[in-house]
Amino acid sequence: MDDINSLNTGIPHPARRYNYWLGGKDNFEADRVSGVQIAQAIPWIPTAARANRAFLSRAVRFLVRKAGVRQFLDIGTGIPAPGNTHEVAQSIDPRARVVYVDNDPLVMSHLRALATGTPEGKTGYIHSDLLDPDEILREIGATLDLSQPVAVLLVAVLHFLTDDDAVHAAVGKLVAAMPPGSYLIISHAALDLVSDVEREALEKLTGPDGGNGPFKLRAGTEIAAFTDGMKLVEPGLVPIQIWRPEPDSPFGPDEQIGMYGVVAQKPS
């Protein structure tokens, strides 16, 4: 999640690697090499990227249709691809408002060019980092009305942050600043959904000498801790492919996809 590395095309970057796994073209040789290395060690990773995108879409649709949410704060969004948050939300209600936050200048340039939204709604962009919640909170007021519920999306981003104290403090500050009735959407690579062999391979690839950037698997209980004090939307914290699946889902309930997903509501 480093600004400098995001501009260095010779160093793999999570957003560009994720774009590669999704079948996108906004990536470089280092990202593709990194993506292949990780996928060779953990073959379900590219499937998990697609399943994660589908989870995001289902969660946003649920919140717009069932919970009446019309405002979204998408942090660490990555390079635009089909099914962006504003596309999903505004396809249901064109008045929906979305703010994208990312610390990668490449991501921000793509967002400003492609994530324009509907005339009835509003789409904003903040070049910042989850670990700087104060800056995010200073800027979101230009797009979002903090007297009304907001859904905060942390989709496949927390596992790139390894300092537990710092990330819990940042998430806590953001949730505390949201109005009652707001929501938190999280997906996260799960320690207890991978084998020991896969865990060891991933730790080697993403360790200090791995060359693929930092990464931290967390157990389900650790992921659930980000939602402490909030009410979990059914079915709670579950593997992403079984969070309110749709009939035509290509991801089977027993398919190995080592990520949890959860949607939680801040008490009213």
Rank of each mutant, 00 (worst) to 15 (best):
G124C: 06
Y260A: 07
V194L: 14
R70T: 13
G68P: 00
S182W: 05
A176M: 07
F55A: 08
P267W: 10
L154N: 07
K173P: 05
D209Y: 04
Y183T: 00
R95K: 15
S195H: 08
D134E: 14
R58P: 09
L191N: 13
R112A: 12
S195Q: 02
P82K: 05
P133M: 03
H86R: 05
S268M: 12
F251P: 00
I126A: 10
E29M: 13
P235Y: 04
R32W: 07
L146D: 09
G141T: 09
P253G: 08
F55G: 07
E246Q: 13
E120D: 14
R58T: 05
T118W: 03
G83A: 02
G213V: 02
L154Y: 12
S195I: 03
E135Y: 12
D254Q: 14
R244E: 08
L73R: 10
T9Y: 13
R50I: 13
Q241M: 09
E222Q: 14
E234C: 05
A67M: 10
W243I: 03
L193Q: 06
I257S: 06
L232W: 14
V99H: 12
P14K: 05
G23D: 01
D3Q: 15
I136G: 05
G207H: 03
W44D: 14
D248W: 09
L130H: 10
L184R: 08
A224F: 08
K66W: 00
F28N: 01
M178L: 14
G213L: 00
A170L: 07
I4Q: 15
P179Y: 06
G181Q: 08
R138W: 02
V262Y: 11
G35A: 00
F72A: 01
I186D: 02
V99D: 12
K216P: 11
S195T: 15
N52S: 11
D248K: 11
D254T: 15
A89K: 09
V155P: 08
R61W: 05
E234V: 12
V36Y: 08
D248I: 01
A176V: 02
L154S: 09
R65V: 13
A225F: 05
Q148G: 04
I45L: 14
A170N: 07
S34T: 03
D74N: 10
P149A: 02
T162H: 00
P250M: 07
A89I: 00
D31L: 02
Y20M: 09
A177D: 06
K231R: 15
N19G: 01
D132L: 11
E135F: 11
D2Q: 10
S34N: 02
T47I: 14
P253N: 04
D196A: 15
F251G: 06
A142Q: 15
V101R: 10
S182A: 11
F215E: 02
R218W: 01
L191F: 13
V60F: 06
I79Y: 12
N212G: 01
G207M: 05
D132K: 13
K216A: 15
P235V: 03
R218M: 03
F226S: 04
Q40R: 15
A49T: 08
A156E: 12
G261K: 05
K25M: 09
V171F: 12
